[in-house]
Each structure stands twice: as structure tokens, then as C-alpha cells.
Measured scan of single mutants.
Amino acid sequence: AVSDRLIGRKSVVMEAISPQNSGLVKVDGETWRATSGTVLDVGEEVSVKAIEGVKLVVEKLE
């Protein structure tokens, strides 16, 4: 599936994300709604860990 190619990809937070609120990330020039178990600020680099419905699950790059 097209979405499977996103797992493991680097992306950049475009709208802040917290455990309570989804935000936005940009992956390969496309904007996606995303969630995370931690707070992520605009501009942080993250990695796509999973896809749940139409949202990406991301975490901060170490």
C-alpha cells in the first residue's frame, strides 16, 4: 500500500503534537495528521512509526 512506504520515513512537525491532540507533519512534501505519545514542537524531526486509519503515529528522532 502507498501508506506502507511512509513507515520509517523522516518527517518534520508542522503543527505541534501532544498525547491529547493530534498535529500535522510533512512527509515527502505531503502533509499528514499525526499523533504521538509525547509532546512534539513545530520544526522537530520525527520518524513515522505506524499508521492508524488516516493518521500517522510518529516519535522524535534520537
Rank of each mutant, 00 (worst) to 15 (best):
A1N: 12
A1E: 11
A1Y: 13
A1R: 11
A1F: 13
V2S: 12
V2T: 11
V2M: 13
V2E: 10
S3W: 12
S3C: 12
S3L: 14
S3F: 14
S3P: 13
S3E: 09
D4M: 13
D4N: 14
D4W: 10
D4I: 13
D4A: 14
D4S: 14
D4Y: 09
R5C: 12
R5Q: 08
R5S: 10
R5N: 08
L6V: 06
L6G: 00
L6Q: 02
L6S: 01
L6R: 04
L6A: 01
I7F: 06
I7G: 01
I7T: 05
I7W: 04
G8N: 06
G8L: 05
G8H: 04
R9N: 05
R9I: 06
R9Q: 09
K10C: 14
K10E: 06
K10Q: 08
K10S: 08
K10L: 14
K10D: 06
K10Y: 10
S11N: 03
S11R: 00
S11P: 05
S11I: 08
S11Q: 01
S11D: 03
V12D: 02
V12L: 10
V12R: 07
V12I: 13
V13I: 04
V13G: 01
V13K: 00
V13M: 02
V13W: 02
V13L: 02
M14D: 03
M14N: 03
M14P: 00
E15Q: 13
E15M: 12
E15W: 07
A16T: 09
A16P: 10
A16Q: 10
A16M: 11
A16E: 07
A16G: 08
I17Q: 02
I17N: 01
I17W: 02
I17C: 05
I17K: 02
I17V: 07
I17F: 03
S18Y: 08
S18W: 07
S18E: 04
S18I: 07
S18V: 06
P19I: 05
P19R: 05
P19S: 06
P19T: 05
P19A: 06
Q20W: 14
Q20V: 09
Q20K: 10
Q20E: 12
Q20N: 12
Q20M: 12
Q20P: 15
N21V: 14
N21A: 12
N21W: 09
N21Y: 12
N21F: 12
N21C: 15
S22L: 11
S22F: 09
S22Q: 09
G23L: 02
G23W: 06
G23N: 01
G23I: 02
G23V: 03
G23K: 01
G23H: 01
G23D: 00
G23C: 03
L24K: 10
L24P: 00
L24M: 10
L24E: 05
L24N: 03
V25G: 00
V25Y: 01
V25E: 01
V25P: 01
K26F: 14
K26R: 12
K26S: 13
K26E: 12
K26M: 15
K26D: 10
V27F: 06
V27K: 02
D28A: 08
D28R: 05
D28H: 05
G29D: 09
G29I: 03
G29Y: 05
G29K: 06
E30Q: 11
E30I: 11
E30Y: 10
E30P: 00
E30F: 10
E30K: 10
T31E: 09
T31Q: 08
T31W: 10
T31N: 09
W32Y: 15
W32I: 01
W32H: 07
R33D: 08
R33A: 14
R33I: 15
R33L: 14
A34P: 01
A34E: 01
A34Y: 04
A34V: 03
A34W: 04
A34S: 04
A34T: 04
A34R: 00
A34H: 01
T35M: 10
T35W: 07
T35H: 05
T35G: 05
S36N: 00
S36V: 01
S36H: 00
S36C: 07
S36G: 05
S36A: 11
G37M: 14
G37D: 15
G37P: 10
G37K: 13
G37N: 15
G37Q: 13
G37A: 14
T38C: 13
T38D: 15
T38R: 08
T38F: 11
V39S: 12
V39L: 10
L40K: 00
L40G: 02
L40D: 01
L40P: 00
D41L: 13
D41P: 08
D41V: 12
D41Y: 14
V42D: 01
V42C: 10
V42A: 07
G43V: 01
G43I: 01
G43D: 05
E44G: 02
E44K: 05
E44T: 12
E44S: 07
E44P: 01
E45I: 15
E45L: 14
E45S: 09
V46F: 03
V46K: 00
V46C: 15
S47P: 01
S47Q: 14
S47Y: 15
V48L: 02
V48M: 03
V48G: 00
V48I: 14
V48Q: 01
K49H: 07
K49Q: 08
K49Y: 08
K49D: 02
A50L: 06
A50R: 10
I51G: 02
I51M: 07
I51N: 03
I51Q: 06
I51E: 02
E52A: 09
E52T: 09
E52I: 13
E52F: 11
E52P: 02
E52M: 12
E52Y: 10
G53N: 05
G53C: 04
G53V: 04
G53Q: 04
G53L: 03
V54C: 15
V54K: 13
V54F: 14
V54D: 15
V54H: 14
V54A: 14
K55T: 15
K55M: 15
K55V: 15
K55R: 13
K55G: 10
K55I: 15
L56D: 02
L56N: 00
L56M: 05
L56G: 00
L56Q: 00
L56K: 00
V57K: 05
V57T: 05
V58D: 00
V58Q: 01
V58Y: 00
V58T: 01
V58G: 01
V58K: 01
E59A: 10
E59S: 08
E59R: 05
E59Y: 07
E59G: 08
E59C: 08
K60F: 04
K60E: 03
K60P: 11
K60R: 14
K60S: 07
K60L: 07
K60H: 07
L61R: 07
L61D: 08
E62A: 12
E62N: 11
E62C: 12
E62H: 12
E62G: 11
